[in-house]
Amino acid sequence: MPDSPVQLPAHRMPVLRVMPMPRDLNPAGDVFGGWIMSQVDIAGAVPARQRARGRVATISVNSFVFKQPVSVGDIVSFYADIVKVGKSSITVDVEVYAERNPEDPVVVKVTEAVLTYVAVNERGVKRAIPPEVAA
């Protein structure tokens, strides 16, 4: 049974969009997993930094699943949502999609990850996360 078509999440904006370049490839011609991991870390830090209202540092990668390879020319979109806020930590879920084949566009989910960040002060010392600001 063929997989159903995947679409970019319509109800959310990506926190990061990027196109990998030839320098990002491994010898097999796919984008290095480490390149994707670094971009996921950046994408996850965006909402964590906003919620912490300041600097954050990655303290753990709770899960990371590669589902499909990424190629040069793919437009890679990173969606990040906070799933838990503790006293000084913020856990973020990141989903990654690749848009490929511009002549006949296809979207595939390439990666899922959950990372935890800790709020730190200007000296890199752990600090409390301030109360959430009412909208």
Rank of each mutant, 00 (worst) to 15 (best):
M1H: 15
P2E: 12
S4D: 12
P5M: 10
P5G: 09
P9T: 03
M13K: 11
P14D: 04
L16E: 03
L16Q: 06
R17G: 10
V18L: 12
P20I: 05
P22F: 11
D24G: 14
L25Y: 05
L25Q: 13
N26W: 08
P27M: 10
A28I: 06
D30V: 08
D30I: 10
F32C: 12
F32R: 12
F32K: 11
G33S: 12
G33N: 07
G34W: 04
M37W: 02
S38H: 04
V40C: 04
D41H: 01
I42V: 05
G44N: 03
G44I: 00
G44F: 00
A45T: 00
A45F: 00
V46T: 03
R49S: 09
R49F: 02
Q50G: 04
R51D: 03
R51L: 10
G54W: 03
R55V: 01
T58Y: 00
I59Y: 01
S60P: 02
V61N: 05
V61R: 02
V61D: 03
N62W: 00
F64A: 06
F66K: 04
Q68V: 01
Q68S: 09
V70C: 13
S71G: 08
D74V: 02
I75T: 11
S77L: 04
Y79E: 02
Y79W: 04
Y79P: 05
A80T: 01
K84P: 01
V85W: 08
V85L: 14
G86N: 07
G86C: 11
K87F: 06
I90V: 15
D93E: 14
D93C: 07
V94S: 06
V94Q: 04
E95A: 15
E95V: 04
E95C: 10
V96A: 07
V96N: 05
Y97P: 09
A98H: 06
E99A: 15
R100W: 03
P102A: 13
P102R: 10
D104T: 09
D104L: 13
P105F: 12
K109F: 02
K109P: 01
V110G: 09
V110A: 14
V114F: 03
V114C: 07
L115H: 01
T116N: 09
T116A: 10
V118Y: 07
V118Q: 06
R123G: 04
G124Y: 06
V125F: 08
K126G: 08
R127T: 08
R127P: 08
P130M: 13
V133A: 15
